[in-house]
Design a binder for these strands. Structure first.
Lengths: 195, 195, 195, 195
DNA sequence: TATGAATGAGTTTTCATTCAT
DNA sequence: TATGAATGAAAACTCATTCAT
């Protein structure tokens, strides 16, 4: 029998946790796996990272689209959370910067994820996208009103800039592996900041 | 060892055009295949598009890197050609616009291509990249000196803008299917043109 | 260890009918499942038909042989019951006909069941087989003595005829879907009846 | 270089024979595999028996039904061949006996094969079934006209008798594993022979 | 040299069985 | 005791690469 009050945050080797816990484990593993190996990462790899059997991954997400959709939703929720924090941050620039950085990182890590789902994402994805865009709009305007962000950049260009920051600029080979990503983000942010 | 008096410097009507023709067929097919299915497109698909057997593709490009490198070089050459035309075009804006559009299209179609090669591209790629960047710089400056391109855009940001115009902006799903690509380019070019 | 004064010889209203009820549910489900899907039917399917969890099926019948043995015993008991009724039936032909029909149906539905157990059936199965054969012998002889069944058919051929009537005749595809089964039985019975 | 005229009937280890040869190997292996392990035998097992890679089995028979259909056709052809020989055999009884024996063996070995295909067998199967039945009819009548086969057995009952001879008579456990099959056939043939 | 059949490692997927709840 | 989630071995299936023809 485990010591009283010992079991909540440990899960050191939880051999068969409840469904909720396992779903979360699988989801987290899938995020890491997709970031590391791309959209075609195998279910076995995800299961390995999650520390569960493949069968469990299949039970939770019988279709790959479902799993990828869940990953996308997870990322969108993370970004929405960051966007809310950006709006609450007393330092308008710090908030914007953090949001932009996260946006750039996630965009780069999960290249093709959203694209591959597109229509199939369903309303849960569409809803979150709208919500995130709205928050992004407000965070951008707030930074501009605080005179810390250049006025001549439209809020709807921000995602493009984030994209550009992390995607390798393919044909020209202008950088950018995972390590350079932060650097590229910094450069772009410098360009965005009101001088 | 080839027969004496072999084939390098002889008449342009040299008979064994077969091999070269096949190489060209494969290369063209590979460009289409990568544009359509991404970097992981199978050799079988390329062979199918080229109308040859898989074995032929393997014979011409035993390593995937070699094939992708050849595709990249092919694209770079196309862009270099367009860049030269841009510099020769009496209408500085038209030249710049055509170059930017092609850059955007190729970048979008072949996302990740250059990235995936990176170091392995070899000098042939590096050389062409430099050359293209230099031409791009000159085309940009020329357009700015002709007062048809905004002054506050740095020439080295052009590839980023092109990238942003056509890549799907993953997480947010703003993207850019084939139809929207041209539209996105147009929008960005409008933004770039000197008002 | 069960509580003192436990449940074996107590009142017929004994409370823990649960277990027995579940066993009966599983058994009935297994009969239907085997008839529908063959010997390799999954425990999950049986559990589904029984309306219980798989775990319950495994608890009641940890080995597949045990479950199949129980199914076989159930069928044999049904046939023995019918055979007894055949002997009691004032109409010797009606009794024989009913028995033959049931024999044919069960043989067809559960092709391979007995075969798959064979040695492993244990004494419970062997005993019932002997008993059924003896009853079948007597029912056959009784019908022949009543001059309603052809004399030139040996009682021990009856099971073969029943088998032939319902099994799909594999290679030739003459067979015997569920609808044709009764028809085939009727034809054979017509042949057996004393003209 | 292999010795002249050496390659036709050897194939001791032919690592990559031509397609025809491999198709035949796979088919023969599938027949053995189905006889040994039933309809659900794995593609890997078939490939192993055939001495080829699984991919080859999939290339030849992408659908299991196709493979099983080919096996069935192969068996039907074998039976048709035997039936023709029966009609040509100067000894009417020997011809009939050989045919009946093969029919019983194949029926027993491939229980469920024809059944599982049924409609999906296509015209190739239906055609052969008709042909075999006609030949069987003629072989039966010939044996009866030669007074070596009982007159009171209808030709269309022959497949049922063969079925009964080899299938285990399930519920009653009257024999019959693979070894007893020949014995059961002999018993039945004794019963069929004109006394 | 071109071809595409063959290969088999790797991935996807199922499901009999176990076991935490 | 009943449940059904979890497991993972095994089966189905794919496809990059090789190699006989």
């Amino acid at each position: 029998m485990p010591p009283v009050g010992a079991s909540r945050d440990e899960a050191p080797k939880a051999p068969r946790a409840d469904a909720q816990r396992n779903t979360a484990l699988v989801l987290a593993a899938a995020r890491r796996a997709v970031a590391a190996h791309g959209l075609t990462v195998s279910y076995h790899e995800i299961a390995r990272l999650a520390g569960v059997g493949v069968g469990t991954v299949y039970r939770r997400f019988p279709e790959r689209d479902q799993l990828m959709g869940a990953v996308l939703i997870d990322i969108l929720d993370e970004l929405i959370c960051e966007a809310n924090q950006a709006l609450d941050n007393p330092d308008a620039w710090a908030g914007f910067r953090n949001l932009f950085t996260l946006l750039a990182l996630r965009t780069g890590e999960n290249a093709g994820l959203s694209d591959s789902l597109d229509e199939r994402g369903g309303p849960q994805v569409a809803q979150r996208r709208s919500r995130l865009l709205e928050l992004l709009r407000r965070a951008t305007l707030r930074a501009q009103q605080a005179h810390v962000l250049r006025d001549d950049v439209a809020w709807h260009d921000i995602p493009f800039l984030a994209q550009g920051a992390t995607s390798a600029v393919c044909v020209l080979g202008l950088h950018a592996g995972p390590l350079q990503a932060q650097q590229a983000v910094t450069v772009i942010l410098d360009g965005l900041r009101r001088s």
